[in-house]
Structures are given as structure tokens and as C-alpha cells.
Amino acid sequence: MLADVAPDPTSSAAAGHPLAPLPYRVRAVATETADTTTLTIEPRSTRSVPAPAPGQFVMLYAFGVGESPIGVSAHRADGTLVHTVRNVGKVTSALARLTPGDTVGVRGPYGRGWPLQEARGQDLVIVAGGLGLPPLRPVLYEVFENRDRYGRVEVIYGARTPKDLIYYEELQSWRRRSDLRIQVTVDAAGRDWYGDVGVVTTRLPDVRFDGSRTSAFICGPEIMMRLTAQAVVARGVRPEATWVSMERNMKCAVALCGHCQFGPTFVCRDGPVLSYRALEPFLAVKEV
């Protein structure tokens, strides 16, 4: 047991509280789809949160409404953060209503992101479904910046319909790149869509990689992640090199409130990015 528990220095009013947000200014708001908005925010004062690693998340705070865990889809050295928010609840709808000049609270970044260090020298298979793309975008930025660190890079991005695709302009520019291949697929489309139709796993047979030296990064709805992880493991990717970004009810984000537990993990602290090796026994059980 612990010998003595010392008082926490951060408990003094001046030093802040681990659950207290910092004020940020909304600099830009972009509408991605009917229910999805991208916020670009910057610190209001000299105090800002530390630079997030790809795959980490922050708690975004709508004043007087509450907090929601939101992945970081980009950040800059000046403290600017970019978040893509889907309007699905009380807090996210308040976040979606923000306009430039408004204030939003931020605390974080939290959790463990994509294991890019371990992925060096390997092929990367990146599979995003729907709102799974924002937390993976920093991985692509890292790849573009340090392209020689990785082997083949294959990206599959799936959405419900063509209208639900986010970062549309950027997707076009990624498709023109020769240093990675991106396949975009939707679950259903009208006749004006000349791209692929089918769930993301239907694109996997086309993807080329050396399974024994590949890291797979998967983010999207849980069913999609489970099926995709199974599919890439079946193609020879090691389960411990297959990573998924879990989503649970993160409230405190620092493993103190208990809400986000998934089996033995606190998704907020031990995840959100977790290996399929660790998750597999629990993903198969309903309502863990």
C-alpha cells in the first residue's frame, strides 16, 4: 500500500484543477456535412494545452452545457487545434452552434494515440469509417512529413453516402499523391457517384502490404473496426500490430470516474488506441 499520501499541490486555487478547462477562441467553423462541423480553435491566453500526439483526444467544453471527448484532427505549433464534431447530443450540438469569436473550453490531450514509433519501417494500412477519419488525419500528416519512415501506405476511407464524406477537398489532393494510395468507398450511392460502393472491408483485397511487417490503424464504428481488424489479421497482420481507436463514455478522461471502462482498460487513459490483441476477447462479447 501507499505509505503516505501527500496533499496535491494542484489543489490550490492558483494552480488549477486537472478537470478544469482552458478557454480557447473559435477561429473558424467549416461545415463538413449536414451534421458535422470542423472547428479551428486557438488559445485565448498564454496558457494552452500541450501538443497532442496523433490519436489523442481532448475534452471540449461548451460553457454552461458540458464536455465531450473529441479527437484531434490537426494541430499547429502555435497552439491551434482542429476538431471535427458530429452533432449527436447536447454538448456536441452546442459545439456545432459555435461561431468564430466564440469561446470553447479545452483540457487534455488525453490517452495513448497511434503507435507511430513502433510502425516505423513498416507498411501502414489505415482504415477509417465515417468520423473515424479525423483522429487518423494526423497520422497522414506525419506520413507526409516523414515519408521515408514508412513503407507502403494504404488508406481506405468509408462513409455512409457520398454526401457524408468529410475533408472532401483534402481527399482529392490525397488521391493525387503518388506516395500513398487512398480508396474511398460508400455504403450506398446514387448514379452520380462513380467511386466504390461497399463497406470498407470490400476494399481490403485490393490493398497490398507485407503482413509480417505492417501496422494497421483502424478507426470508425465499433462493428466496422472489429470486422476490419479480423480481416487484416486474416491477411497476416499481427494482432499486436493491429490498432483500433475505441470509443466509450469518457467523462473525466483521467481514469478517475470509471465510466469508460472496457474490460480491464480505461479507454481514456490506456486507449483510446488499443491493440486488437488486447481487445479481441472483449470485442466479441456483447455489452462489455
Binding site: 501507499l2 503516505d4 499520501v5 501527500a6 496533499p7 489543489s11 486537472p18 483521467v254 478517475l256 487513459r269
Partner: peptide
């Protein structure tokens, strides 16, 4: 008590209120 010490004061982020009350 030893268990809650680990929960609130044993991790990377600790609970300020718990630690302060617990210390005395």
C-alpha cells in the same frame, strides 16, 4: 483505504481533493 489510495492517488493523474483530505 489502501485500495482507494491507489485509485485516487496512485495513477498518473491524481484527485486533488482526495489527496488533500487523505493527507491529514
Amino acid at each position: 483505504l489502501a485500495v482507494t489510495d491507489r485509485v485516487f492517488a496512485g495513477g498518473p493523474v491524481t484527485d486533488p481533493g482526495y489527496r488533500t483530505r487523505r493527507s491529514s
